Amino acid sequence: MTTFKLIINGKTLKGEITIEAVDAAEAEKIFKQYANDNGIDGEWTYDDATKTFTVTE
């Protein structure tokens, strides 16, 4: 398992979430479901060097 981080730069929600996932594809699926569940819709980026996803509304 690898640790992945999501940085949320939303209009109403900001913060960071860290999860353990098998790979970046699994982490992205989990993070996008979390964002969808919380009404966050924005532009996604991923930095493989730091294993960090960012979503900006």
Rank of each mutant, 00 (worst) to 15 (best):
M1G: 14
M1Q: 11
M1N: 07
M1T: 10
M1W: 05
T2I: 05
T2D: 10
T2K: 03
T3M: 12
T3P: 10
T3L: 07
T3D: 12
T3A: 07
T3V: 09
T3W: 11
F4R: 00
F4I: 01
F4V: 01
F4E: 00
F4S: 00
F4C: 01
K5Y: 07
K5E: 02
K5L: 14
L6T: 01
L6H: 00
L6S: 01
L6R: 00
L6F: 11
L6I: 04
L6P: 00
L6W: 09
L6D: 00
L6V: 04
L6M: 14
L6Y: 02
I7G: 03
I7Q: 11
I7F: 05
I7A: 11
I7V: 06
I7Y: 12
I7R: 13
I8H: 13
I8D: 01
I8W: 10
I8Q: 08
I8T: 06
N9D: 09
N9A: 05
N9V: 11
N9R: 10
N9F: 14
G10L: 12
G10S: 09
G10K: 07
G10V: 09
G10W: 14
G10F: 11
K11N: 12
K11Y: 12
K11F: 06
T12K: 08
T12Y: 08
T12D: 11
T12E: 02
T12S: 10
T12M: 03
T12I: 10
T12W: 07
L13D: 14
L13W: 14
L13Q: 14
L13T: 14
L13R: 06
L13M: 12
L13F: 13
K14F: 06
K14D: 05
K14Y: 14
K14S: 06
K14T: 05
K14Q: 05
K14L: 14
K14N: 13
K14I: 07
K14E: 02
K14V: 12
G15V: 04
G15M: 04
G15Q: 08
G15I: 10
G15K: 15
E16Q: 12
E16A: 11
E16L: 09
E16N: 15
E16W: 08
E16R: 09
E16P: 07
E16M: 10
I17H: 12
I17Q: 07
I17A: 07
I17K: 12
I17C: 01
I17L: 08
I17F: 10
I17T: 10
T18L: 15
T18D: 07
T18H: 05
T18M: 08
T18S: 07
I19F: 11
I19W: 10
I19C: 01
I19N: 14
I19A: 12
I19E: 06
E20L: 04
E20G: 04
E20F: 03
E20T: 05
E20D: 14
E20M: 05
E20N: 05
E20P: 03
E20H: 02
A21W: 03
A21M: 10
A21S: 08
A21V: 08
A21D: 06
A21N: 14
A21I: 10
A21L: 04
A21H: 06
V22P: 05
V22C: 03
V22D: 08
V22E: 06
D23T: 11
D23G: 15
D23C: 02
D23S: 06
D23V: 14
D23R: 02
A24H: 12
A24C: 02
A24W: 15
A24P: 14
A25L: 13
A25C: 04
A25I: 02
A25P: 06
A25Q: 10
E26Y: 15
E26R: 02
E26N: 06
E26C: 02
E26Q: 02
E26V: 06
E26T: 09
E26W: 13
E26I: 08
E26S: 13
E26D: 14
A27N: 00
A27S: 06
A27V: 07
A27H: 00
A27G: 12
A27M: 01
A27F: 00
E28H: 12
E28I: 13
E28C: 03
E28A: 05
E28L: 11
E28W: 12
E28M: 13
E28R: 15
E28N: 10
K29S: 05
K29W: 04
K29T: 06
K29H: 13
K29P: 14
I30F: 15
I30E: 03
I30C: 03
I30Y: 10
I30Q: 07
I30W: 13
F31L: 08
F31N: 00
F31M: 04
K32T: 08
K32E: 15
K32F: 09
K32D: 12
K32Q: 07
K32A: 05
K32R: 06
K32P: 00
K32H: 11
Q33P: 04
Q33G: 15
Q33D: 03
Q33Y: 10
Q33S: 13
Q33L: 12
Q33E: 04
Q33N: 02
Y34Q: 02
Y34D: 01
Y34M: 14
A35V: 10
A35M: 04
A35T: 15
A35S: 11
A35E: 01
A35Y: 01
A35L: 10
A35H: 01
A35C: 02
N36Y: 14
N36P: 02
N36G: 15
N36D: 03
N36L: 14
N36Q: 12
D37G: 15
D37P: 02
D37Y: 14
D37L: 11
N38I: 04
N38P: 01
N38D: 04
G39R: 12
G39E: 11
G39P: 06
G39H: 09
G39W: 07
G39L: 06
G39Y: 12
I40C: 01
I40K: 05
I40D: 01
I40F: 09
D41A: 13
D41N: 14
D41E: 14
D41R: 12
G42N: 04
G42P: 02
G42D: 02
G42E: 02
G42M: 03
G42W: 10
G42H: 10
G42V: 03
G42A: 07
E43W: 06
E43R: 15
E43Y: 09
E43F: 03
E43C: 03
W44C: 01
W44K: 00
W44T: 01
W44H: 01
T45F: 08
T45V: 10
T45A: 03
T45H: 06
T45L: 08
T45M: 15
T45I: 07
T45R: 10
T45K: 11
Y46V: 02
Y46L: 11
Y46N: 01
Y46T: 02
Y46W: 06
Y46C: 02
D47M: 04
D47G: 15
D47Q: 08
D47I: 09
D47L: 10
D48M: 09
D48K: 03
D48Y: 05
D48P: 07
D48I: 05
D48Q: 09
D48E: 07
D48V: 06
A49G: 07
A49P: 13
A49W: 04
A49E: 12
A49C: 02
A49L: 14
T50M: 09
T50Q: 05
T50V: 04
T50R: 14
T50C: 02
T50Y: 09
T50W: 07
T50L: 15
T50F: 06
K51C: 03
K51G: 04
K51H: 03
K51D: 01
K51V: 09
K51L: 07
T52A: 10
T52L: 11
T52E: 03
T52R: 11
T52W: 11
T52I: 12
T52H: 14
F53Y: 15
F53S: 01
F53C: 01
F53G: 00
F53V: 01
T54W: 03
T54E: 08
T54L: 09
V55A: 05
V55Q: 01
V55F: 06
V55I: 10
T56K: 12
T56C: 03
T56G: 04
T56S: 13
T56W: 05
T56N: 09
T56I: 06
T56H: 10
T56D: 03
T56L: 14
E57W: 13
E57D: 08
E57Q: 15
E57T: 13
E57N: 14
E57L: 11
E57Y: 11
E57G: 09
